Simulated scan of single mutants.
Amino acid sequence: MSERAVAIDDILIETYPDAHCELDFASPFQLLVATVLSAQTTDVRVNQVTPELFNRYPRPADLASAGRADVEEILRPLGFFRAKTTSLIELSGRLVAEFSGDMPDSLDALVSLPGVGRKTANVVLGNAFGIPGITVDTHVGRLSRRLGLTKNTDPVKVERDLMAELPKERWTDACHRLIFHGRRCCTARKPDCEACPLSELCPRIGV
């Protein structure tokens, strides 16, 4: 555990006390679906299409037997909607066939599903099941390197570095706070270093 990493997270706790998963969901299955859909698009856009999707296909069995064209039409506003349709129908079928339609609550089981990687699995574990995990999306990876918490670009290595830097009980929410900061202050194109609450702890301030 790193005192500096904890100090960074303490500041982010004060800055973003309401940091949370910004995908809308009412069940672990809905969060899994929404997270798969969030790849290469925004949470806002995902939240615009999931109400209709969840209303028509509330359970894995419903989505597993859905007509492909019907699902594609709902997902059309999203990028890569055809590939995402394939992933959702296939992972739903796997949930029915191998897990009796229930959502597994282990990393190994989740990543065995089509279209589900470690990032998606950790989102579901942390936010639907309360099992701590590090979610390395573009914001978490970028800010972790900028703040000197890792030198790695590989998401799995970044995940392991942050696990070593922060107490386990902080893992899930610390990622939400980094994502909030990356979206609201330390953006990729134009970081607002003058307004940054981490200015004294950031080795790359102004870079």
Rank of each mutant, 00 (worst) to 15 (best):
A164I: 04
R146I: 08
P167G: 03
G130I: 08
R145Q: 15
R170A: 08
A174V: 01
V124T: 01
H139L: 13
G141V: 09
I134L: 08
K190P: 03
T172I: 06
R146W: 09
T187M: 04
T150W: 02
W171D: 00
N127R: 02
T138C: 06
K151T: 15
R184H: 15
T153L: 09
T153C: 04
I131L: 14
L162P: 10
C175G: 08
L149E: 02
V136F: 12
L143P: 01
L162T: 04
C175W: 00
V124F: 04
A164T: 09
K157E: 13
C186F: 00
F180E: 14
V136W: 04
R184P: 02
T135M: 14
R189W: 03
A164M: 14
T135F: 00
D173T: 14
E165V: 13
G148N: 11
G133F: 07
L143C: 07
V136Y: 09
D137R: 11
R142F: 11
C175L: 05
P132S: 10
K190N: 13
D154C: 01
R142C: 12
T150R: 05
L147F: 11
K190T: 13
F180N: 13
L166H: 00
F180S: 08
H139W: 12
H139V: 09
M163S: 13
R170N: 10
A164G: 15
G182V: 03
G126F: 01
T135D: 03
H139P: 06
C185W: 02
T150Y: 05
R146D: 10
C175K: 01
I131Y: 05
C185D: 07
K157Y: 03
D137P: 10
C186L: 05
K190A: 14
A188M: 05
H139D: 11
T187A: 04
C185H: 07
C186I: 00
A128L: 09
P132I: 12
N127A: 05
P132A: 12
V140Q: 04
L147E: 05
L166C: 01
L147P: 03
L125A: 07
D137A: 11
L125Q: 02
R183P: 05
E165M: 15
R183T: 02
D137G: 11
G133H: 06
V124P: 02
P167M: 06
R184S: 14
I131P: 01
E165C: 15
R183F: 08
I134P: 02
R145W: 12
M163D: 08
L162F: 04
E169P: 04
E169G: 12
I134M: 07
G126L: 01
P167N: 05
P132F: 12
V158H: 03
V136Q: 10
L143D: 05
P167H: 08
R184A: 13
F180V: 03
D137L: 07
K190G: 06
V136C: 11
R189M: 06
G133E: 05
R170S: 11
V156R: 12
T153N: 12
D173A: 13
G148P: 09
G126N: 02
G141L: 10
E169R: 15
L147T: 01
A164F: 06
R170M: 13
W171A: 02
T135S: 15
H176G: 09
L147R: 02
F180L: 09
L162Q: 00
R183L: 11
R145P: 07
V158K: 03
L149K: 01
M163P: 08
S144W: 07
N127H: 15
P167R: 02
K168F: 00
L143Q: 06
H176P: 03
K157P: 02
H181E: 08
P167E: 05
G126P: 01
